[in-house]
Write a protein that binds this DNA or RNA. Structure first.
Lengths: 227, 227
DNA sequence: CTGCTATGTCTACAACCGTAGACCTGATGG
DNA sequence: CCATCAGGTCTACGGTTGTAGACATAGCAG
C-alpha cells in the first residue's frame, strides 16, 4: 500500500497541493466505491484511501458522507451522449447498448449500478430519486412523447434497472450466459413496446401523436468523459 | 419496550419454551426486517428484539446472520399460488397484480423487495441468486415456453424487479402517482411481449411453437399463506 | 422431590463506522 | 528570510456490528 501521497489514484504526477485536483480524485474514488459496493458498503476511509487522502479531508471537502454521495449521484447521472432523435434508432441503440454494457464486468461505473447497490438506504434512495428527477427523468419523457410519456419513460428506466440487477448484481444464470444478440433482440421488442405502445382500440399500429420537444434531444457529452 | 417474553411478535400467548414457535417467530421477524431495510441494514439484535428474544439465540438457531438470511430467502421465494396455465390470463394477472402490489406501502413482505434491498451485499446476492434459481427460475421458464424461454423468463423477473425498484424503493414521481389502471395496461403490453414475442421474420403474429411442459404449471400454495 | 437437558440470557470482545477538534506543513507574498 | 494561511493529517470518541463463551432457568423424567 503506497498511497501516502495525494493523487495516487490516477496520474502518478504526485501533485502536492491542489485543492481542485484532490477534490476531483476524491470524487472519482467515491464514485468507484459507491458504484461497486453501494452507499452503506463504502466507508469514508476506503474512499479517502483510494484517493490517496485521509478520511477527514473527505468530510472537510464535502461536509458528510451523505453530501459526498449526493455529488457522486449528480455526476453519475450527468447527461451523457444521447442516442439521437430518431425513435427507432433510440430503441435499437438502447437495446444493444444495454445488452453490451451489462455483459462483462469491465466498466463498473454505470449509474444504474450505483442506484441498485445504494437504494437500500432510504437517504441514498431519496438522493437518487432527486438525481433521476433532475437529470434523466424529464429528458427521457421528452424523448418518448405521446400518451403517458412520463410513466412510459420511468417504465423504461425500470426495465433497464431490472436488467442491470438480474444480469450483473444478482447474476441470474440465463441472463448471464445469454447470447448478447439474442438478449438485444428481446430488449428491442420490449423497448419498442414502450416507445411506440400499441393503441388500446387499435386500428393502425404506429400513429402516435408526435411531440414538439425534439429540440432538446441531443445534449453535450459530460465533461467527465475525459477520464 | 415490553418485549421480554418470547412470542411478543405475533400472538400474546406468552408461550414460555417452545423451540419451534421461537424459531418461527425469529424467522418472521427476520423476513420483516430484511425486507424492510435489507441484509446489511438489519441487525441481529433488532431481529431478535422484534421476536422477543436475545440476539445470541438467533445465532444459536441459525448459526449466523448469513444462514438466517438464506432461510428467509428460501421462505420468501417459496412457491406461491400460481396464476394459471393460460398464458393470456397469466399476462393479465401478472400485470394487474404487480400494479396493485407496488401501489401502497401496506404489505412490505414481497420477495422482490427483499431482493432489491439486499442485493448490494455480494454474499446476500449469491444467496438470492441461488434461491431464485431453485424456486422461481425454472418454474417461470416452464410457464413461458418457446424460444429463449429462460432468457425471457428472467427478463420478466427483471421487469418486475425494476418496477418494484422504481415505484417503491426509489419512488420515482410518475410511477408513484401513476393511475393503477394505466400502469397495468402498459405492463400488460410489456409482459405480453415476453410471453408471446414477435417473430423476427414475422408473417403471422402469434404462431409460437407450443411447448410440452405445461404440466408442471400450477403448484401448491405455500404453507406460509396462513400468516 | 431431584436431576437433567433443552431453551435462553448475560457479558464481552474485536472490528468497524462517521465525524469532531487539534495539530502539522509546505508553498507563497512580503 | 519569515509570516501566513490554505491544504492535510493525527488522535480520538461514541456508537454499532456480528459473534463467541460462560452462565441461568424452566419443564419434564425418574
Amino acid at each position: 500500500m503506497s498511497h501516502n501521497a495525494p493523487g495516487a489514484g490516477k496520474s502518478p504526477g504526485t501533485r502536492r497541493r491542489d485543492a481542485a485536483a484532490t477534490r476531483e480524485a476524491i470524487l472519482r474514488s467515491a464514485q468507484e466505491s459507491f458504484t461497486r459496493v453501494g452507499y452503506d458498503g463504502a466507508g469514508v476511509r476506503e474512499v479517502a484511501g483510494n484517493a490517496g487522502v485521509t478520511a477527514m479531508l473527505v468530510n472537510r471537502y464535502f461536509g458528510s458522507k451523505e453530501q459526498l454521495f449526493a455529488e457522486v449521484v449528480d455526476r453519475s447521472f450527468a447527461p451523457r451522449t444521447v442516442v439521437g432523435t430518431d425513435r427507432e434508432a433510440l430503441t435499437e441503440q438502447t437495446a444493444s447498448t444495454l445488452a453490451a454494457r451489462t455483459a462483462s464486468d469491465a466498466d463498473d461505473l454505470d449509474p444504474f449500478l450505483l442506484m441498485l447497490r445504494s437504494a437500500a438506504n432510504p437517504r441514498a434512495a431519496e438522493i437518487i430519486r432527486a438525481g433521476i428527477e433532475r437529470h434523466v427523468g424529464s429528458h427521457v419523457t421528452g424523448l418518448l412523447g405521446g400518451a403517458d410519456a412520463a410513466v412510459r419513460a420511468e417504465l423504461l428506466l425500470s426495465l433497464i434497472a431490472g436488467v442491470w440487477l438480474m444480469r450483473r448484481v444478482v447474476a441470474t444464470p440465463a441472463l448471464s450466459e445469454a447470447d448478447e444478440e439474442t438478449l438485444a433482440r428481446h430488449l428491442r421488442d420490449l423497448i419498442w413496446t414502450l416507445v411506440d405502445p400499441p393503441t388500446d382500440s387499435d386500428e393502425s399500429t404506429d400513429l402516435d401523436p408526435p411531440t414538439d420537444l425534439d429540440a432538446e434531444a441531443d445534449v453535450t457529452a459530460a465533461d467527465d468523459a475525459a477520464g
